[in-house]
């Protein structure tokens, strides 16, 4: 014979079990609704590619003969020019991290950020009027303050300076040597020039700070011109200068 107090305890436990089951079901449903709501929103990263893959030119370096040769790749790139420049460099460095690369570099993220700044640098801003838009969609710049007497000038309307902020982890692991460091920089310059022709000049930072050299040799304090750095392009430019 089951005593009365035991029956009371039994039915209380049953009620608790059923109640907890209902609570669990309700919370589960709420969790599903939250996940569905997140999926409905556009939460993709800003620099994630939103377009179809396109053909880009990567200027690939070769330590064996010190050359730089263009190579075509199908890559999906974001629309934003800053993110586009960063994605290009990331793909370039990723190529060098592959086994058997002719210019072996350590794997990992190389670029923290790329900033495209309109030229000339001081006291100017972009002109947002439609009449100031040049061929290719580049916008002209207009002075907004007393201009620098000797500012860095753009060669073409809409010319930009790219400030590339490198990760110190990448720089600290970069192989040391005049040739290997120069090839890395020339490869980046050539790739930007080939795919983003509005970039005329390039400066490098490391973790947001100016740094003297890449790995003890190549100068990171100067402003580099974004030009064709392939072997044929360099030969042509040397011929012109001489």
């Amino acid at each position: 014979m089951i005593q009365r107090h035991q029956r009371i305890v039994f039915w209380c436990l049953v009620v608790c079990i059923v109640g907890m089951g209902v609570l669990l079901a309700v919370e589960r449903q709420r969790g599903r609704q939250r996940i569905a709501a997140l999926a409905d929103d556009d939460q993709t990263p800003l620099d994630a590619p939103t377009a179809m893959a396109e053909t880009v030119t990567l200027d690939l370096a070769n330590d064996g003969d010190g050359s730089i040769a263009p190579a075509s790749r199908q890559i999906a790139l974001p629309e934003d020019p800053n993110a586009r420049a960063r994605a290009l460099i990331d793909h370039l460095i990723a190529e060098y991290a592959l086994p058997g690369s002719a210019h072996a570099l350590p794997p990992g993220a190389a670029v923290a950020e790329v900033f495209l700044v309109p030229l000339p640098l001081v006291g100017y801003t972009t002109d947002s009027t439609s009449s100031a838009t040049k061929d290719g969609g580049f916008r002209a710049t207009v002075p907004v303050a007393q201009s620098d007497p000797d500012p860095v000038q753009a060669k073409q309307p809409g010319g930009e300076l790219a400030v590339i902020d490198l990760h110190s982890t990448f720089v600290n692991q970069h192989p040391s040597g005049v040739e290997v460091e120069s090839l890395t920089l020339r490869s980046i310059l050539g790739t930007l020039h080939a795919n983003l022709p509005q970039i005329e000049q390039v400066r490098f930072l490391v973790d947001g700070q100016a740094r003297e050299t890449l790995a003890g040799h190549a100068d990171l304090l100067r402003t580099y011109p974004a030009v064709d750095t392939t072997s044929s392009g360099s030969a042509a430019s040397q011929g012109r200068s001489n």
Binding site: G66, V178, E179, S182, T213, A218, D219, L221, R222, Y224
Partner: peptide
């Protein structure tokens, strides 16, 4: 031999 141009301080 590899001959090229480079920006290596203090050559400039």
């Amino acid at each position: 031999l590899i001959a090229s141009n480079a920006s290596v301080r203090p050559i400039d």
